[in-house]
């Protein structure tokens, strides 16, 4: 029998703690595969956030730090400055990165900090039970926007890639989707490019994954993907915002 797929070396033999149908496992796998492919497992360090992926520090098979809510880019900065010979990434959700950690992500990006940031946007707080996120869509119902997100009251969803694209320093910014097989293959290419740039010491790289939360959206997994394709992708348009490597 031929083995055609196996656990990436960069993932530990630990079961994920995610809900059925959650895409975090896919995102983890893409990152782990890319780290394997670039041969970085022995020089990698990751920083996990607070949110559904809070246990990410248990899943990756190299040294990991668990950061306070929103502070992953600052923690990663500390690690990278202390260990310049290592390659560092953060893995963060929308509440963590785009609400409580807005200052940290903007300034890490603005410094051109040599990090890869993987940002999972599913428009909701998962771990705490489906509250409104900074990326929750207009009129979308959550447990803290039970009548729908009223943009006159709480503003519009933040488009983080576009926001960071106003800064001079970032090296690579791309938004990808995890909402179909072909999209995931495209996402893999983006993740691999970010890890490659990280390996080459190019600077700040940022990948946003448009994802789902079947549990808190109250949908079946496939239904949630369809909903996200119809509702999220028009607002959070996939694409390359910045690629200084391609320009060069």
């Amino acid at each position: 029998m031929e083995v055609i797929a196996t656990r990436p070396e960069s993932l530990r033999e630990v079961s994920f703690t995610y809900c059925p149908g959650c895409m975090h496992g896919v995102a983890h796998r893409l990152i782990a595969e890319a780290i394997d492919e670039h041969g970085l497992i022995n020089k990698m360090a990751g920083v996990a956030p607070v949110g559904c992926s809070v246990f990410a520090y248990k899943f990756f098979n190299f040294d990991m730090a668990e950061a306070a809510h929103g502070r992953a880019p600052a923690v990663a900065t500390g690690i990278k400055r202390a260990r310049p010979d290592m390659h560092v990434f953060t893995y963060q959700g929308d509440g963590d990165l785009a609400a409580i950690g807005t200052a940290e992500i903007v300034h890490a990006a603005n410094r051109g900090e040599h990090l890869s940031v993987f940002f999972v946007n599913n428009a909701i707080y998962g771990m705490t039970g489906g509250q409104m996120a900074p990326t929750t869509l207009p009129d979308m119902k959550t447990t803290t926007s039970p009548y729908g997100r009223k943009v006159d009251d709480v503003g519009y969803p933040i488009r983080v890639c576009e926001l960071l694209d106003t800064l001079v320093a970032p090296y690579y910014i791309e938004r990808v989707s995890l909402l179909s097989g072909p999209d995931i293959i495209k996402a893999k290419k983006a993740v691999s490019k970010a890890i490659q740039y990280n390996k080459e010491g190019r600077g700040f790289t940022f990948i946003e994954f448009v994802s789902t939360c079947p549990t808190n959206w109250g949908m079946k997994p496939l239904e949630s993907m369809e909903w996200a394709r119809e509702n999220m992708l028009p607002y959070f348009k996939p694409g390359v915002f910045r690629d200084k490597g391609a320009q060069a």
């Binding site: 360090a45 920083v47 730090a65 950061a67 306070a68 502070r71 600052a74 923690v75 990663a76 900065t77 500390g78 690690i79 990278k80 400055r81 202390a82 260990r83 290592m86 200052a103 940290e104 903007v106 300034h107």
Partner: peptide
């Protein structure tokens, strides 16, 4: 050495968390 003026006290202490986690005097 590394001197970094952080964007806030909050960030500064979390940079310390990262660097201390990497085992260096910070």
């Amino acid at each position: 050495g590394t001197f970094l003026q952080a964007e806030s006290e909050v960030s500064a202490i979390n940079m310390v968390y990262g660097a201390a986690g990497a085992g260096k005097r910070v």
